Simulated scan of single mutants.
Amino acid sequence: MTDEGEGSVNASPGLAARLCALALLTASGGLLASACADNESSLFVRQRMARTGSGGDCTVSCSPSEPSWSGDAIDSAYVGSHSATLLVGNQIVQRGDPDVLRTETSRVQLYEAEVRVFDTQGNPVNEGYVVPIHGIIDPGTGSNAGYNCTEVLLLDGATMDTLRGQAIELGRDIEVLATVLIRGRTLGGQEVEAAEWSYPVRVCFGCSPCADTEPTACCYGMPHPDCEDLEDVELSCSGLRGPQDCRSLGRTCAEHLAAARR
């Protein structure tokens, strides 16, 4: 699935407009006004990138033309938190000029994301949290934005605990929206902030198939000649539900689910 949505407005357009108006009244040059205009539409989240492969072989490519997902589905019985790879765009124009020895200041260094989670009625699931992120995004060229990926913690441990409890109590999927606000800083020292970007996540408990080995001693990593003859269960990438193998849990599936319910 590919998410074609794109947001590219500043999270505080009113404040930016007032600052620009003040700058225009107090500055005679047009350079400062141009910088303010850039900040109104400089940074945006394009999409959640898909991971291909399985298990430890999952890979991601950072380009708007690469596959993306429009929603995640995770089993809280087997994960304690959940992260996603987001593609972030930079629409600030290039300002570097080698002919006059002017360095490029329009690259954006991403440094934090503010995450809040809501249920489908708009009620907050958590109080929100700020997490560090990493990535440098080159400036756009012409009408094309520059892009790079960053990993964002969509559901932290406390939020996952809450959703796990709800899924167990209700016996069904819990649907939420993770709302992300990305912040960065240009190499020229200008703070930039993307518009809030929301992404749906479905959380269940114990809805993924889990396979025990025969003999069960293999589940605990104990040596046994028959363990080598068993076919591995193909595990899914983060963000997708898929089969579980007791050998990756270090105990039988029933034991793991019982412990996860506590």
Rank of each mutant, 00 (worst) to 15 (best):
D245L: 10
G71M: 15
G221V: 06
V45T: 14
G165H: 06
S65L: 14
L32R: 04
T105P: 00
P215W: 08
C237Y: 06
R185I: 12
T105A: 10
D38W: 03
A33E: 13
I182G: 00
Q94P: 01
S34Q: 13
T252P: 01
M222W: 08
V79C: 07
L177F: 15
R102F: 05
S106E: 08
P124C: 12
C253W: 00
D38Y: 06
L170P: 03
D119S: 06
G89K: 00
R183A: 12
V233T: 15
L240Q: 15
T141V: 11
G188R: 03
L19F: 08
C36K: 02
Y199S: 02
S63I: 04
T213V: 14
T150N: 02
V108N: 00
E231W: 12
L31A: 14
L153W: 02
A178G: 09
L19W: 07
N39P: 00
M49R: 05
V201I: 15
N123T: 12
G184I: 02
H256D: 01
E6Q: 10
E112M: 08
R48L: 09
N144S: 08
E127Y: 11
Y147V: 05
G7Q: 14
A16C: 10
N39S: 14
W69M: 11
D57W: 07
S34F: 10
C218M: 09
P67M: 10
I136G: 00
E175C: 05
E255K: 01
D97K: 09
R18G: 06
G140M: 02
T216M: 05
G135M: 06
Q109W: 13
L235R: 09
L31D: 15
C210M: 04
G55I: 04
C204A: 14
E114W: 09
D38N: 09
N123R: 15
M160P: 02
D161E: 15
A17K: 04
E66N: 14
R51G: 04
S54V: 04
V176S: 02
A21Q: 14
L110T: 01
L181Q: 05
C218Y: 03
E4Q: 12
G188V: 04
S248W: 02
L155H: 03
T150K: 00
V45P: 01
Y199Q: 02
I133D: 05
I137L: 08
D173T: 05
L249I: 03
E6Y: 11
P64H: 06
Q166H: 07
C149F: 02
L257V: 03
A217T: 08
P124A: 11
L154S: 02
A260K: 05
D245T: 09
H82I: 01
Q91S: 13
C246N: 02
Y129F: 14
